[in-house]
Simulated assay, not measured.
Amino acid sequence: MIMGFIGFGKVSRNLAELIDSDDVEFITSIEGRSDSTIENIDESKIEVLPTFKEVAAKSDILISATSPKAAADVAKAYGKFVSGIYLDLNNISLETTLEIDKHVKNLVDGAIIGKIDSDNPTLYISGKTASKLLFLDEFLDVKVISEKAGDVAVLKLLRSSYTKTLTALLIESFEIAQKHDLENEFFEIVSLTEGDDFKEKSLSRITNTLKNPKRKAEELEEIISCFDDGELIMVKSALEKLNQY
């Protein structure tokens, strides 16, 4: 089986490490990729083809893990060359997912929940051919939600609306605590109700968000695009906060 990647950031790189099987061959391309992505590919030692068109055509499973804004364009450009499963792992809206479904034959809508670099993250999937990916359960926890592409898109955006809005509040509170030289005390007092691992998890969230504020802001924009009925006050505030970085 050949598994191809369009986009080779943290998600793709760790999936290639987790799916440790002699029966799976990984391919990608460095076409138009950044220096950091090319470095990731070189370190992973997977097969590199000249173009993504060739990657798409050769793959039994093509994984799109790029960015929310690029997801639809990637599907339009390469989906028509995929005869196998097209697995989209981008944090995109239901509207974008349904648009992608118009351009690929076998869309599976997916989301990785939990740290991708952990030993056993959870892959949630939906779509008519989602059950064909249950073999991946040998390498990570796989849960099929339904045969309806888009169900996972809604769930992952709901999760993101909670986690990213909460993280924006954490950043704001932490910054105020720093100004008062009370950051350690801040984590200590909140840990009394939120648990002993609150500081560790919070700092991880804050660090990850501040390393990728543009990417996180794009995900919030997808949430607003999908769900906005004039009530997303907190999500819009979180987006405003992230746009400051």
Score class of each variant (00 low, 15 high):
residue 105 K to G: 09
residue 105 K to P: 05
residue 106 N to K: 10
residue 107 L to G: 00
residue 108 V to H: 01
residue 108 V to S: 01
residue 109 D to F: 09
residue 109 D to N: 07
residue 110 G to A: 11
residue 111 A to T: 12
residue 111 A to E: 07
residue 113 I to F: 13
residue 113 I to N: 08
residue 114 G to C: 02
residue 115 K to W: 10
residue 119 D to N: 15
residue 120 N to A: 10
residue 120 N to C: 07
residue 121 P to R: 02
residue 122 T to P: 00
residue 123 L to C: 04
residue 123 L to E: 05
residue 123 L to D: 07
residue 124 Y to F: 13
residue 125 I to S: 02
residue 128 K to E: 10
residue 128 K to L: 05
residue 129 T to D: 13
residue 131 S to V: 11
residue 131 S to Q: 09
residue 132 K to W: 00
residue 132 K to R: 10
residue 134 L to M: 10
residue 136 L to V: 04
residue 137 D to Q: 07
residue 138 E to S: 13
residue 138 E to L: 11
residue 139 F to I: 13
residue 139 F to N: 08
residue 140 L to K: 05
residue 140 L to Q: 08
residue 140 L to H: 06
residue 141 D to L: 07
residue 145 I to C: 07
residue 148 K to W: 03
residue 151 D to Y: 01
residue 153 A to N: 11
residue 154 V to R: 09
residue 154 V to C: 12
residue 156 K to S: 05
residue 156 K to D: 12
residue 157 L to P: 08
residue 160 S to N: 15
residue 160 S to I: 03
residue 163 T to Q: 06
residue 163 T to G: 11
residue 165 T to F: 04
residue 165 T to W: 06
residue 166 L to Y: 12
residue 168 A to H: 01
residue 170 L to D: 14
residue 171 I to E: 07
residue 171 I to H: 06
residue 172 E to G: 08
residue 172 E to N: 13
residue 175 E to V: 11
residue 177 A to D: 01
residue 177 A to E: 03
residue 180 H to L: 13
residue 181 D to T: 10
residue 183 E to T: 09
residue 183 E to D: 11
residue 183 E to F: 05
residue 183 E to A: 09
residue 184 N to F: 09
residue 186 F to N: 10
residue 186 F to T: 11
residue 186 F to V: 14
residue 187 F to T: 13
